[in-house]
Design a protein around this nucleic acid. Structure first.
Lengths: 201, 201
DNA sequence: CCGTGTACAATACGAGTGTATTGCAAAAAC
DNA sequence: GTTTTTGCAATACACTCGTATTGTACACGG
């Protein structure tokens, strides 16, 4: 077998170009030629690594969820929590919210990529199938943090509620209908009410 | 001036076809020819009523927000509240949530249309500009209902929070990651906590 | 060193896109 | 009844799209 190249590395490189386009111009603007140009390779190279555009999009979503999001997002959370006086569940959740909501170019791009894929997944079962475990994983993570709060709350319901709140706050912030600080304030209020609450759920 | 036809009616007819396509196959599947065929008219007719595809999409979003959503949605809310024993703020908000979350073909289509436009608005300022007042209007409506609860809460923040929660719950329901009943239960818990709450916000 | 299979590059193809152009039937204006 | 203007239909044009095909440089196994 000739020509040793790192197959996975090339795919990550191409997918990176794809995500950059999707984050700035939307998934509609993603064509194989555009991706090739953004990645600095030929159309033939892109075709060589992905059998079809659908396969490329699916692989892009999976890589984005498993590598880009998981890694950089978790890293930013840790960095933010480290700056806090105490790594309490509340501080951690606030850090998650602060990083999840779009507040600069990188996070806005991330939010747009997520929104694009969510929109397409609504009419493309293959993408929905890849998105479901990511949603479940996010909820599990939130639930794990909530469990450490020591409060008598339904952690699973609270986690799903928080996930939905964060996701739902992204859109008005993205289109400029709600300032980032206001969105963060809403999450703060939600968390305060949730964790200070002693009554029945 | 010859040939009297109701200009607005024809536009609504064409836009209706467009929204049907967007709701079932996504906004990407919307082409002028597809819209023409779905509407049962010629491509020339569509061009006659819309100067460009962008103008058609913008008009479609505006009509959808101002006519389809406002009218049918408000109507369904009223019908649902009428079935309740008392038209309390809580009952009204539960009705809003029950109708907002996708639970049948019509509401799933509505949610997919909304999601498609949100996604495109993130990269198309003209669409974002049309979406902002719709968001504001929705928040105003929720705030108006919350004000009648007689609870000492920050109605504006609570309204924005509820709007985000509802929007964020739509997506996992759409992709089948969260059952409709569970989503509604989350809203119930949120409303109960919100309206039963006596402490500071 | 020589074949063999890999990693591309280049190009071609048919389908579909938005838009512009042209033509024409019919109804109102005169 | 002629003229004019509207409401469309048909078609053409220049692209772009995903995909298929072909060619080739080149590293490895033998």
């Amino acid at each position: 077998m000739p020509r040793r190249v790192d197959h996975d590395e090339r795919r990550r490189h191409i997918v990176g170009a794809l995500l950059r386009i999707a984050g700035t111009q939307g998934l509609d603007a993603v064509s194989m030629r555009e991706v090739a140009q953004e990645a600095g390779v030929s159309l033939g190279a892109v075709q060589h690594y992905f059998a079809s555009k659908d396969a490329m999009l699916l692989h892009a979503l999976e890589q984005w969820l498993n590598l880009d999001v998981h890694r950089s997002f978790a890293e930013r959370i840790r960095a933010r929590v480290a700056r806090e006086p105490a790594a309490t569940p509340l501080a951690t959740l606030r850090a998650v919210a602060a990083e999840y909501l779009p507040h600069d170019d990188a996070t806005s791009l991330e939010a747009r990529v997520g929104l694009s894929f969510q929109s397409r997944a609504a009419v493309t079962p293959a993408l929905a199938a890849a998105l479901v475990p990511a949603y479940t994983g996010f909820v599990d993570t939130l639930r794990g943090i909530l469990r450490h709060s020591g409060r008598p709350l339904d952690a699973d319901t609270a986690a799903r509620e928080l996930a939905a709140l964060l996701d739902g706050l992204r859109h008005p912030v993205l289109i400029g209908a709600l300032p980032y600080a206001d969105a963060l304030g809403i999450v703060d209020g939600h968390l305060a009410r949730l964790l200070a609450h002693e009554r029945r759920a």
